[in-house]
Nucleic acid binder design. Structure first.
Lengths: 222, 222
DNA sequence: TAGATTGTTAATCGATTAACAATC
DNA sequence: TAGATTGTTAATCGATTAACAATC
C-alpha cells in the first residue's frame, strides 16, 4: 500500500567491501596492461556472479559500455571516488600496545589513501617517543593534536575496558569515523560511523567452521 | 514442489560471530555474579532482537527454560562446544613480519582457546629466533613441525603474492583451517575452511561510510 | 495462579541471481 | 551485421523479525 521509503534502492551493507575487491582486481589488471574488462571477468576473479558486479556498480551510476564492458582506466577512479579513497585520510591511532604498534608498522594502509600521522597512549612513558616514524602523544593531548594535525579518523587499539571511553574522546575531538580493534562493542552517535574488527571473534568463526565440518564428516552420508 | 534440501534449517553465516558475542556477554555477566539471563537482556546488550538470540541458539538445541530464561553456568559451555572452543587449538603462524609479530605478541587469542605454538618465515635469518616466546622456523620445515607439534590451524600473515602458495603448504601439512590476513583471496579445498580479514578493505569500508554520510548531510532534506 | 519467557512457525524484509531489452 | 555485454526489472533465495502456544 505504501512504498514509504527510499527513492533509490538501499545499498546492501556488503557492497563496499566488494567494491574494494573490484578495485584491487582492476589495479592488478591495469598493471598487467589490460585496458578493458567485463562483469563476467571481474566476477570470476572475485568469486561472485557477473550480475552481482553489475548490480553493485549500478547503485552508483552507469560506468560500462554495453557490448564492450568497462574501461579500466575510467572505472578505477570512479570506485575510488565512491569509496572515498580519492583523497588522503589522516588517521590517529589510540593505544600503542602490541596491536597498535603493529598497525603503526603496517605498510598496507598507505597504498590505499590512509596515513596514520599521530598515535596516543595513556602510558605517560610512551609520550614523546616515536614508533615507526609516528610521534606518540599523551592521550590528554588527543583533542589538541586532532585539531592541529587535521586528523579525521581514529583507530582504537586499546583494551576492551577502555574502548568506549576512547571512542567518546575521539568523537569529542571531531573524528569523522572510528575503526575499532578492541574486543568490545562501542556505541557512537549516528553521525560518526564505525567499523569493528574483533580478531578473537574471527578466530572463533574459523573454529566453528572447522568443528561443524568435522561433525558433518563424522555423520557420514546423512 | 521439491523441498530438496536441508533436513534442518541452514545456519546463516553470521550466526557464529553472534555466538561469540553472546559468549563474551555471558562471561561478563558470570563475573558479575549474575546466574540467569534472558534473550531480551542478551539481545539488548548486543544490539540485536530477542528473537534473533532465541533463533540463533535454536539452531543448536534447547538451552533455555520457558518463563525463566537461560542459566548462565549451563549456557556458557554449550556455546563453547558449538564454537569448538571447548578445546585448545594449536596454531602455526606463517609470516613473521610486522603483522605476524603483532599477532604473536597479542595476548587476546589465548583467552579463547587458541595457542600459537610455532611460527614460520621464508627469511632464513629469522629461523631459530624467538618472538614473544614462540620459536620461528624456516618455512621449509612447515610440514614437519605441523606434524610433530600437532598444529591444526594456520595463520597467514605474508604479503599478498605469497598467500596462495602458503595456503597450499598449510593444506599439504594437514591444517584443518586457515586464517588469512594477506590482502588476497585464497582458494582452498572445501575440506579446509578459511576466514579472511583484510585490514585495508575494512578501512575502506569506514571511508565509504564516512563519505556516504557526508554526502547525505550535504544534500540536506530529501 | 499470573506473569514471564522459551522454542518455533509464519510473515516480512533484504540481498542475490536470472532474464532480457537496449546498445555498442 | 552478429556477437557481446550492459543496466535494470522481476524472480528467487536467505535471513531477520513478529507472533503465539507451550511451559515454568
Amino acid at each position: 500500500m505504501k512504498p514509504q521509503k527510499a527513492p533509490s534502492d538501499a545499498i546492501p551493507r556488503a557492497v563496499a567491501a566488494r567494491l574494494s575487491h573490484y578495485l584491487r582486481c582492476l589495479e592488478e589488471l591495469e598493471r598487467q596492461g589490460v585496458t578493458t574488462t567485463s562483469s563476467r571477468q571481474l566476477g570470476k576473479a572475485l568469486g561472485v556472479t557477473a550480475a552481482q558486479v553489475r548490480k553493485d556498480l549500478g547503485y552508483f551510476g552507469q560506468f560500462g559500455f554495453p557490448g564492450l564492458g568497462y574501461k579500466i582506466v575510467q572505472l578505477i577512479p570512479e570506485i575510488r571516488r565512491i569509496l572515498g579513497t580519492d583523497k588522503l585520510w589522516r588517521v590517529g591511532l589510540v593505544g600503542v600496545g602490541s596491536l597498535g604498534t603493529a598497525l603503526l608498522r603496517y605498510k598496507g594502509f598507505s597504498n590505499h589513501g590512509f596515513r596514520i600521522t599521530a598515535a596516543f597512549d595513556s602510558n605517560p612513558e610512551l609520550a614523546g617517543t616515536q614508533v615507526s616514524g609516528v610521534s606518540v602523544h599523551s592521550i590528554t593531548d588527543l583533542e589538541r593534536v586532532f585539531a592541529s594535525e587535521g586528523l579525521e579518523l581514529g583507530i582504537i587499539s586499546v583494551p576492551a575496558e577502555a574502548a568506549q571511553e576512547v571512542a567518546d574522546l575521539l568523537v569529542a575531538a571531531g573524528a569523522k569515523g572510528v575503526f575499532n580493534f578492541a574486543p568490545r562493542r562501542i556505541v557512537l552517535p549516528t553521525s560518526v560511523p564505525d567499523v569493528s574488527v574483533d580478531l578473537s571473534v574471527e578466530l572463533e568463526r574459523l573454529s566453528f567452521l572447522v568443528s561443524s565440518l568435522a561433525a558433518v564428516m563424522k555423520e557420514g552420508g546423512e
